[in-house]
């Protein structure tokens, strides 16, 4: 044991680590992108839908947000195979993270849209804008800017949530790390290394978020 051992083990395992990290980033990116798109759709229904639609959307977001991510992932993994939808672990993991992300995005978008001052809608109406135009050019640009910090948070939480798909056997960073540890028993070092890699990924998202905020800030 000792640093010499760690460094040489690190070199030996670098491919497994890279692959695991790659899967983590892949799963997270897909989940964030698809989850956000889905979340925006649900969020719009949640804010502007008719009563039955809003009820369904509300039910969806409340239920998803009331379930821990781990339980969501496990439920997807076990239940879907039983009802005839055969997904491998990677697909189940991505789908459950998409849904997780979408529920949070929906709720934050609802908040953002409702926070836009009612005078904005009135001015748009007075100018003769249709609802679609008001939504596209006046409401969304303001709501999106407002929820940007929260969205970055959700993106980071989704990335961290991807660690849980290791439990259903997806070959992402944690599972790869555990397999490496099973070989060389450098438990503390390699978990710390995995932590460092997650840190770098999350921190990058945070930095990117700050950059975005500055770029789109309303002067």
């Amino acid at each position: 044991m000792g640093n010499g051992g760690f460094l040489s083990e690190l070199v030996i395992s670098r491919n497994d680590l890279f692959y695991g990290f790659y899967i983590t980033v892949l799963v997270s990116l897909i989940s964030i992108v698809v989850g956000t798109i889905l979340g925006v759709l649900v969020g719009v229904v949640l804010t502007y839908g008719n009563l039955p639609a809003r009820f369904l959307a509300r039910f969806y977001t409340d239920v998803i947000r009331g379930i821990p991510s781990l339980v969501l992932i496990l439920t997807f993994f076990y239940v879907l195979s039983v009802i005839g939808i055969n997904l491998n672990a990677l697909q189940a993991g991505i789908y459950s993270l998409c849904i997780f992300c979408s529920a949070h995005v929906a709720e934050m978008l609802r908040g953002g849209l409702q926070n836009v001052h009612v005078g904005q809608t009135e001015a748009a109406k007075a100018l003769g804008f249709s609802f679609r135009q008001t939504f596209t050019f006046i409401l969304m640009p303001q709501a999106l800017r407002q929820v940007l910090p929260t969205w970055i948070n959700t993106a980071i939480e989704t990335l961290k949530g991807s660690s849980l798909v290791s439990i259903i056997g997806v070959q992402e960073l944690i599972l790869s790390t555990q397999q490496i540890i099973a070989r060389n028993f450098l438990t503390m070092q390699f978990y710390a290394l995995a932590g460092l890699l997650y840190f770098i990924a999350c921190f990058s998202i945070e930095r990117f978020g700050k950059y975005l905020e500055k770029k789109v800030a309303i002067k």
Partner: peptide, 23 residues
């Protein structure tokens, strides 16, 4: 705060339970 908030809880749990015994 920065470290803990940017690392998944799972890693912290695994590190504490499986890693800390090393020291």
């Amino acid at each position: 705060v920065t470290i803990i908030r940017n690392v998944p809880l799972l890693i912290i749990v695994l590190f504490v339970y499986f890693g800390l015994p090393d020291v």
